[in-house]
């Protein structure tokens, strides 16, 4: 068995799929009572075949998996409830047989991990949008220009404005864009239809 497993592992080294043909539950193991049998199947799916690579005893055709399947059924017939059956096996083989790790000090981090990650990443998003809110409240977009450059640019804009017609000139539009926090698209994207107007008019958004 060991040899078969290790050779399988070697060949499995490249593939993204487990490599054990699984034909587990045999007709002679099945209990007559369909309710008990269904419970047995459910319990078996949560118990690890200890000599296998990540297979439950329900999926494995290893001898010990069969023995444990029979043991599960034996306990069920003897009247144990699901919990008792599982603890009977854990008492002999340890927590290692549980495919659903129990909630205990050495698995706190495992079970708490996903919610903690969710909280961390949600915090990041909140920080991200708070920055947005602040900048919006300030009525400004992020300013890529240094104060000095900005002053120069403003002066330039004023000069241009002075030479053009008052009213609906480019100055107003430019100022509005700045206030929106809209940086003009880089030159090579100007040909692309952008944003929602385009969405509505041409049914075109890149997504």
């Amino acid at each position: 068995m060991t040899k078969l497993l290790s050779s399988l592992l070697l060949v499995a080294a490249f593939a993204a799929t487990p490599l054990a043909p699984a034909q587990a539950v045999n007709p002679d193991e099945v209990l007559d009572d369909p309710v008990l049998e269904a419970r047995a199947r459910e319990i078996s799916a949560e118990l690890r075949c200890v000599v296998c690579q990540n297979q439950s005893i329900d999926d494995s055709d290893a001898e010990i998996a069969r023995d444990l399947r029979l043991l599960v059924r034996e306990r069920l017939v003897a009247g144990d409830n699901d919990e008792q059956v599982v603890s009977y096996i854990v008492a002999r083989y340890g927590d290692f047989v549980l495919l659903r790790p129990p909630w205990q000090p050495n698995t706190y981090m495992l079970w708490a991990g996903p919610p903690l990650m969710a909280i961390l990443i949600a915090t990041l998003a909140v920080i991200f949008f708070r920055t947005y809110q602040r900048q919006r409240n300030a009525g400004l977009g992020p300013d890529p220009l240094s104060p000095h450059d900005r002053a120069e640019l403003d002066a330039l804009v004023e000069r241009i404005a002075a030479t053009t017609e008052p009213g609906n000139g480019p100055t107003t539009r430019f100022r509005a864009e700045l206030a929106e926090g809209l940086t003009p698209p880089p030159p090579d994207t100007t040909d692309e239809t952008e944003d929602n107007q385009a969405d509505a008019e041409q049914g075109d958004t890149r997504s």
């Binding site: 060991t2 000599v51 001898e63 010990i64 023995d67 444990l68 043991l71 002999r92 083989y93 340890g94």
Partner: peptide, 13 residues
Amino acid sequence: LDARASLDWGVTG
């Protein structure tokens, strides 16, 4: 013969 006692001993192989 049926490895039943071995199970009680927690034998894996």
